[in-house]
């Protein structure tokens, strides 16, 4: 159950480096993603869903700019300084809201990062007392199992069809122009 905190530190830096890379790669499309979004607004799942869907449902242009700016600033902060729970919270809030605002450009990878960023808030609580240690240790194992879960579930889902069982699935997927080398 012991947590390798040096690896956690490296992992947190890697996550924020990815975030900055993603943001810079998205800059050329920013107008369609966030400024005048192509994606129609998503329905808010429930009251708690407002936390992650505020920009999609009610956000103004100014609030989108603020979210992008905060995401860049606090990703940089978390990259170069020890990650605090409040800075991790801000990064998660901005990222998930921007992801849901541009859901048409989303992917499983982005959902995975959103989940990891949520648990990163708890992971950042550290080991100052027993309660914090329980929380951060739980977050560490939840993040590890989240990756296992993604691959396990996608494997099980494939067993419910026929193409993966009769061996034709790979051929169908790679000959699809959207996914294969002809795309």
């Amino acid at each position: 159950m012991n947590v390798p905190w040096t690896s956690v530190w490296l992992f947190q830096k890697a996550i924020h480096l990815w975030l900055l890379g993603f943001l810079f790669s998205a800059l050329g499309t920013a107008e369609w993603l966030w400024d005048f979004p192509i994606s129609p607004p998503l329905p808010v799942p429930d009251k708690l869903g407002w936390v992650t869907h505020f920009l999609s449902a009610k956000g103004s242009q100014a609030s989108v700019y603020v979210a992008v700016l905060l995401l860049v600033l606090f990703s940089l902060y978390n990259l170069f300084r020890p990650v605090r729970w409040w800075s991790a919270l801000l990064v998660w809030l901005c990222y998930t809201n921007l992801m849901n605002l541009a859901w048409m450009a989303g992917s499983g990878g982005q959902q995975l990062i959103a989940n990891v960023l949520f648990w990163n808030i708890v992971l950042s609580l550290g080991r100052e007392n027993a309660l914090r240690e329980i929380a951060s240790t739980s977050a560490f194992w939840i993040i590890r199992l989240q990756l296992v879960l993604a691959y396990f579930v996608t494997g099980i889902c494939k067993l419910t069809g026929s193409a993966w069982l009769d061996g034709s699935a790979i051929g169908i997927a790679v000959s699809d122009s959207a996914f294969g080398p002809n795309g």
Binding site: V51, T154, K158
Partner: peptide, 22 residues
């Protein structure tokens, strides 16, 4: 899960799409 941990892992499952589309 839906409010905070929504995720879906159905990449090419149960079967890959039989038609590509553009």
């Amino acid at each position: 899960a839906r409010p905070l941990f929504h995720q879906s892992w159905q990449l090419f499952a149960p079967d890959p799409p039989p038609c590509s589309c553009t």
